[in-house]
Simulated scan of single mutants.
Amino acid sequence: MLKLLAEYKKPEKTKLQVIPGQLNITVECAPLDSSNCVTSSYIPIKPFGKGCESIAVEVEEFVPEVAKYCYPFTIYKNHLYVYPLHLKYDNQKTFAKARNIAICIEFRDSDEADARALKCIYGKPGGQLLTASACAIVLHHNQSPEFYDEIKIELPIHLHQKHHLLFTFYHVSCEINTKATTKKQDTVETPGETRTESSVCALLVKRCNPSNYNYFNY
Rank of each mutant, 00 (worst) to 15 (best):
S144K: 13
F95C: 09
E65K: 13
E58R: 06
K68F: 08
L80C: 01
K183P: 00
E175F: 02
E146Q: 10
S35W: 07
C135L: 09
D111Q: 10
N212V: 00
F169T: 01
G49N: 14
F147W: 06
R207K: 14
K93D: 09
A136I: 03
R207N: 13
A102S: 15
I105L: 15
T181L: 06
N36T: 01
T14R: 08
Y71S: 12
P191V: 04
P64K: 11
V27G: 01
Q17S: 08
A98C: 06
K206A: 09
K152P: 00
K9W: 04
E12S: 08
C208F: 10
K88S: 13
T39Y: 10
A202R: 15
S40T: 06
E60H: 13
Q185C: 03
P145Y: 04
F169C: 01
N214V: 02
C135G: 02
Y71H: 14
Y71R: 13
E193K: 14
K162F: 08
D33H: 09
I101Y: 03
P84L: 07
E60R: 10
T131F: 06
K3L: 10
C208N: 13
L165F: 08
Y83H: 12
P47K: 03
S40W: 07
L203W: 01
L130G: 07
G21E: 04
A115S: 15
S198Y: 15
I157A: 10
P145R: 02
K97C: 04
K3A: 05
E60Q: 12
H79I: 04
V27D: 04
T74S: 09
Y81R: 01
Y148D: 12
S41L: 15
Y170W: 11
P72G: 04
H164S: 02
K179M: 07
D186L: 15
T131C: 14
P145Q: 05
L155M: 14
E61S: 09
R108F: 05
D111Y: 08
L204A: 03
P47G: 01
A180Y: 09
K46V: 05
D33V: 05
G51I: 05
R207A: 11
I75H: 12
E60C: 11
N177P: 00
Y122C: 06
T26F: 12
E193A: 11
S41N: 14
E175M: 03
K50G: 02
L166H: 11
T74Q: 12
E28I: 12
G126N: 08
L87H: 00
E61I: 07
A115R: 06
